[in-house]
């Protein structure tokens, strides 16, 4: 029976690790060169060569694959699109992070939607009574159909995009990357992150995928086209 306290278990576990590795002293801290030597990274940085538009199309396709609703517009049409989505959903209340660009909601505020800006006093129970949440994102990954939130001012704290059942997330064109290896260097590891690939889902019943469990059951992604793409995707 081990009756060690946490601190002596710390020493014991480290001793066991060193014994297992055939040493009695601490192993030296590996240098970046050591890691580079030990780990072959000849996997792909991206899996195809694509134009920015093709990358955006792939993102849209992959988001839709996992039942996110994808809407494409341009900067001028963004506010109207958000307002339309809130109306179609029948949302009476929406919550937004404090740093959401004000002009995104111009049209929504004109509707009969009560838009609440997040504040620390807003409890999970109160969030549960809100119909929709509108946020931006940190970046989006085309190959996997993933949106990354990093709690920046236009995205807010994690609970915000979790408790309401309807999430509208805006992706700007410069935020789209192709692949995982392109995404990670652009993120700050120590920020709280939520990676979202479609609405909540489960495969727990007969390994058959069903969308919609605890997280927002409806994910609407609004992809804003760059000016160069506007001719292809008029707002």
């Amino acid at each position: 029976m081990t009756n060690t306290t946490g601190s002596s278990s710390r020493a014991e576990i480290l001793r066991r690790v060193r014994q297992a590795l055939g040493t009695t002293t601490a192993t030296a801290a590996p240098t970046p060169e050591d890691i580079a030597r030990d780990v072959p990274r000849d996997y792909a940085t991206t899996h195809a060569t694509r134009t920015p538009l093709q990358t955006a199309d792939l993102l849209a396709e992959h988001l839709a694959d996992y039942r996110a609703h994808v809407h494409r517009t341009d900067a001028a049409g963004l506010a109207a699109t958000i307002a339309r989505l809130l109306t179609e959903r029948g949302s009476r209340t929406a919550v937004v992070p404090a740093g959401l660009p004000g002009d995104w909601l111009t049209d929504a505020r004109a509707l009969d939607v009560d838009v609440v800006t997040d504040h620390p006093g807003l409890t999970p129970v109160e969030l549960d009574a809100v119909d929709s949440v509108v946020t931006g994102c940190a970046l989006a990954i085309a190959e996997t159909g993933t949106i990354v939130l990093d709690a920046s001012p236009d995205q807010g704290r994690r609970a915000l995009t979790l408790v309401p059942d309807h999430h509208i997330c805006v992706i700007r064109p410069e935020q789209i990357v192709e692949s995982l290896p392109q995404a990670l260097p652009r993120l700050t590891p120590t920020r709280p992150q939520t990676w979202i690939s479609g609405p909540s889902a489960t495969s727990d019943i007969e390994l058959d995928r069903v969308e919609g469990v605890h997280g927002p059951r409806t994910l609407e992604v609004v992809m804003v086209a760059s000016d160069a793409q506007v001719t292809d995707f008029p707002g």
């Binding site: 996992y66 704290r157 994690r158 690939s197 609405p199 997280g215």
Partner: peptide
Amino acid sequence: ERMNPYTTMWTGTTDGDG
């Protein structure tokens, strides 16, 4: 799946979040 629906990453604690 290409990616699972949700991945959460956290580092220690963050004021006002979590």
